[in-house]
Design a protein around this nucleic acid. Structure first.
Lengths: 334, 334
DNA sequence: TTGAAAGCGATACCAC
DNA sequence: GTGGTATCGCTTTCAA
């Protein structure tokens, strides 16, 4: 690898001058600049981001922590963050937390070690106080998908409670009264919030939450499949099911169909997230829109503004979910 | 941020010694080691990967280039690579190429700039010769999903031709003769290979490839949707369709259903990739298995072995596809 | 077993 | 405008 020294030598100028032309900075005469540019070209010079980082104390990278690298939800998130940062030549260093406190903390350590200029974190397991402490250290953080009282300005989150409410209310409005619920893991904050929204809607309609109709899933297709299988096995009767997310809805629908039910004739289904593929499921899935891309973009902009001093607009911290009615829900007919 | 100097001072030892304990390296007395460890603990010391990289000329990171950060296919790839590397404390720096030659080259430059120890590349647009040249430079590369004659040892790829063949043959075996084809973008290598496999199967059965039944898609749900809509609009008759990948199959099925067709009664469908969600589509999608995870893992192992000198087993460069028969294909009945 | 000191490849401040 | 040089936080000989 050729270095700045090689370039300066070939161009017959000093190190400082080469540095200047790289940073399109100060005043360099056109003639000099040209000499330098030629030398760089000729040598196939690529500046070392590592050396630059050490010298400038800025790595031009932000750490992004998400639960999994695969999966449509995190994929959209990652993609949106990367796209926004890339516009300003900032790179995302991505790590997986696997919804596990230890791994999340380990990944955060890792990103810190990498000297990221800021961290964008989707963390589910690490406790609030950990994040509050982290926020006090020298690397700025923004927490995605979670609202923490003591550091609300660093949070970008969704009103999950309202989302849970909307899903249930929609079903209630259509006349459903026996509504099953396949939730995410109960230890997760968003699961809890959606569940309480769900209960609020039921209460509004004077319907009691039936724990026999509740099943804990894992936010993945398989969990939805198993949850529905279980629900069906118990010979419970219900005309509709709300799933903690779209992936589980897909699994649940498959299970229901395996059991001979037609959707939405025999069973109405509503999901949560509004993944791209929700509209390609059959029947097209009614769901709650989760504006991940916008939220991820907002997180990136927060960093751009506060860390890199780009005057990006950062408007909201807290986003609102919306009902997306498609074909998987039918009016209840007795 | 506290530095190695702070630690050495507090522990009352030299820089070198601190460095030694960090690298669990040489001979350090237990007593000294303990002093250092305590000092680190007390200061909350996190070594700078940047400084380390500069000094050691190793960044402990490998660059991973994929087309998109979202999408189930690339997601699995990324995830598998990261998981394998992480076991050895190597980090993946991920960049998107967006199936565009310029952006791919730019991303490669970027990764090189970042001084990655190796590059794992899923590139679709950049020409072969570019990669051949790149392979001559000082950063080792492994090319995923593409086979390049001059650097085959650096390639991990799938036998796409065979995959295309298997999909078509399956349909032919079931008695289908009028088979539509929604391919990926024709400029892509894998599209071409799958298509020629398709034609080979047709030829074997004495069926002529009908260009009116061929439609070019984009490997995404939307392209499949549009392709099917177009195919249907032309009032062509066909009893089956093979799609370039599962995502397009999902879109195509939605479109067919919108047009009132039942699957597989009126139309059989086969995909390609065998994404996780293929079995949660309705009807469960028959498809060709693309062992992405294994391939990605193999790429990671190649790097582990050749770059980091871990004696990982690296077996195959070229993987074989397999038919996965599920419910979306039906025997042809006239 | 431990320490001193020379880099690694940039940046940035200070002179000229 | 341009050059000299200290510095960033580590690794890595080489001596002691």
């Amino acid at each position: 690898m050729t270095t700045i020294y090689d370039v300066s030598e070939l161009a017959g100028v000093s190190l400082a001058t080469v540095s200047r032309v790289m940073n399109k900075n100060a005043n360099v005469s056109d003639k000099t600049r040209q000499k330098v540019v030629n030398a760089m070209e000729q040598l196939g010079y690529r500046p070392s981001a590592i050396a630059k980082g050490l010298a400038s104390n800025r790595s031009s990278s932000v750490g992004v922590l998400i639960s999994e690298l695969h999966g449509p939800f995190y994929g959209s998130m990652m993609s949106a963050v990367e796209a926004e940062l890339r516009k300003f030549d900032i790179h995302a260093i991505i790590a997986a937390g696997h919804s596990n406190a230890e791994k999340e903390a380990e990944s955060i350590e890792f990103l810190l070690t990498r000297r990221c200029d800021a961290l964008i974190l989707w963390v589910e397991s690490v406790p609030d106080r950990y994040l509050v402490e982290l926020a006090k250290r020298d690397t700025p953080i923004v927490v995605l998908g979670r609202k923490i009282a003591k550091i609300t300005k660093n949070c970008v989150s969704l009103n999950n409670e309202e989302g849970g409410y909307l899903a249930a209310r929609y079903l209630l409005e259509q006349g459903h009264r026996k509504i099953a619920y396949i939730s995410g893991p109960l230890w997760k904050g968003d699961t809890q919030d959606r569940l309480s929204g769900h209960k609020r809607a039921l209460a509004e309609y004077g319907v009691k939450f039936n724990t026999k109709l509740h099943c804990e899933g894992d936010y993945r297709e398989e969990g939805g499949f198993r949850g529905m299988t279980e629900l069906l096995g118990l010979r419970n009767t219900f005309s509709a099911v709300v799933c903690g997310n779209d992936e589980m809805a897909a699994g649940a629908m498959t299970s229901a169909r395996d059991a001979g039910l037609s959707i939405p004739e025999d069973l109405s289904v509503v999901g949560f997230d509004n993944l791209v593929y929700a509209r390609y499921l059959y029947p097209k899935l009614s769901t709650i829109n989760y504006p991940v891309r916008e939220m991820a973009q907002m997180a990136a902009r927060w960093v751009l503004k506060h860390v890199y001093k780009n005057q990006r607009l950062v408007a909201t911290n807290i986003f609102e979910p919306e009902l997306v009615a498609r074909d998987s829900v039918q009016q209840f007919r007795r």
